[in-house]
């Protein structure tokens, strides 16, 4: 029993050590040559543009359902016109960043782990090294940059369509005046809220992509290993999104409010 706990702890510490080393290597790769510009452009396109549809849909329906649910509750206090306030505050501060990040964990985290995992088991990563290419610079750096920078952009898009979804429901179902809704949207926000909604996705994007890369590059054991890596990447990235979100929110509250 003790031996197995010991083994488990050793494996966990090793995993953390390797993750930190990968992040450090990626950090070095971002500031020193060579850079692989084509791979960067490709990743910005795949991670950013490629995730647009799923983020648009998630944002739209989340905003709509928020308006629908809160409309009923607010009615009990005769506060239906304030529905915009609720939608904007929830979307911008919390739901926009977290749901976008969770969608990215499913779409991007799994994709990266599967791709790098397959390259690992087919010895393509070794082939890259044999050909003189550092896989961290070629594969990890472009993905981390794209993930970290595109996650906030996608979050803004999600926030916007979410508020738009709320507007559709507020005006069509709840019969709130359009002008009243938009005024309420703005009134619901403190100046710190958009900042919080904008700062968090940088960390969430970084967590998702770096975990995907780490899990992918540690894939062992053929096609079965790739399957395992993909699942692990999604699970670890999703949990990390919620955990990082909590800690960053806590930190930002202390610093800004």
């Amino acid at each position: 029993m003790l031996a197995s706990i010991n083994e488990w702890l050793k494996a966990a510490v090793l995993e953390v050590q390797e993750y930190v080393r990968l992040c450090a290597a990626a950090g070095r790769g971002m500031v020193t040559r060579p850079f692989y510009y084509r791979d960067m452009v490709e990743q910005f396109d795949q991670i950013g543009v490629g995730s647009l549809t799923v983020v648009l849909l998630t944002g739209l329906f989340t905003g709509a359902v928020l308006a629908l649910q809160s409309g009923l509750t607010l009615d009990q206090f005769g506060a239906r016109p304030f529905v915009g306030r609720l939608v904007s505050a929830s979307m911008i501060k919390e739901l926009g960043p977290v749901l976008t990040a969770l969608m990215l964990a499913g779409r991007v985290g799994s994709g990266i782990a599967a791709e790098l995992g397959s390259m690992m088991v087919a010895e393509q990563i070794s082939a890259l090294r044999a050909l003189g290419t550092d896989p961290v610079r070629k594969l990890v750096v472009p993905r981390i940059l794209a993930g970290t920078l595109m996650c906030p952009v996608l979050t803004v898009v999600s926030d916007f369509v979410g508020i738009l979804g709320g507007w559709v429901i507020a005006t069509s179902q709840l019969r709130v005046e359009s002008g009243v809704y938009w005024t309420s949207v703005l009134e619901g926000l403190f100046w710190q809220d958009p900042w919080m909604g904008l700062i968090k996705p940088f960390f969430l994007g970084f967590a998702i992509v770096s975990i995907g890369c780490h899990v992918g590059l540690r894939t062992r054991g053929g096609t079965q290993g790739v399957g395992r890596a993909t699942t692990n990447a999604v699970v670890a990235a999703s949990v990390a999104v919620l955990a990082v979100d909590f800690f960053i929110t806590r930190l930002l509250f202390t610093l800004m409010y």
Binding site: E123, Q124, A130
Partner: peptide, 17 residues
């Protein structure tokens, strides 16, 4: 990386990209 410029390796199954 410098040493590897003078080495070529053919992997099992090819390992083509």
């Amino acid at each position: 990386m410098r040493v590897r410029t003078d080495l070529g390796m053919v992997f099992q199954e090819g390992a083509l990209f």
